[in-house]
């Protein structure tokens, strides 16, 4: 196995480190975080619009993180479901981190989490309620990213958003499966 310390090229060393450490990000996320000047340069034409799209997505991701926190702290989740919720929340944290850094890279100001969110907590009585609530957010997120992908001026950002869309579609499918529903009810999402 190659040693991280024996690689003179920092970029190659970083890739190896990420691959071996379990911190494997998607290609799109790596591109976003890689600090490529070309990314910012290519975005100048529609940069302001791209920042606005990214910030809307960031706002939704921050709300999803808070929603999963509510679910995790509800006391309604069995241990394996709780672990799943925490894992999914971790994905949303990664999405939010990448989105915020990209907004900054493009010269924008990332939105921050609200001090308080409204969630329908009065309707969360059993584990299935929490799963259904999470599934509805994930379904909405899939639609939101689907509606954002074609709007980016920078196609690298479309690719990154599609990468996040894929992850959230998997969340939705797993949550549907946990509810005993058909995990993949159709060939297309909308």
């Amino acid at each position: 196995m190659s040693s991280f310390f024996s690689i003179p090229n920092p970029a190659a060393a970083r890739r190896l480190f990420l691959a071996q450490s379990g911190l494997v990000l998607s290609g799109a996320a790596v591109a976003l975080l890689a600090g490529r000047d070309a990314l910012a340069a290519k975005s100048k034409a529609g940069g302001a619009d791209d920042v606005r799209i990214l910030n809307t997505a960031l706002g939704a991701e921050l709300e999803a993180i808070a929603a999963y926190q509510v679910g995790a702290e509800s006391g309604l989740l069995q241990k394996p479901v709780h672990a799943l919720a925490v894992q999914f929340q971790g994905h949303h944290k990664e999405h939010a981190d990448v989105l915020a850094k990209t907004v900054q890279k493009l010269g924008g100001k990332p939105v921050v989490a609200k001090s308080k969110y409204s969630f329908p907590v009065e309707g969360l009585k059993v584990q299935a309620d929490v799963l259904r609530f999470a599934a509805s957010l994930e379904q909405g997120a899939v639609s939101a990213y689907l509606g954002a992908v074609p709007l980016f001026a920078n196609r690298d950002l479309s690719k990154a958003a599609a990468s996040i869309l894929g992850d959230e579609a998997m969340h939705w499918a797993v949550l549907r499966n946990a509810l005993g529903e058909n995990p993949v009810p159709s060939a297309f999402v909308s």
Binding site: T56, P120, Q139, S143, S190
Partner: peptide, 8 residues
């Protein structure tokens, strides 16, 4: 439900 990422 398509609106559910952002709206209630």
């Amino acid at each position: 439900p398509r609106c559910a990422a952002c709206h209630a």
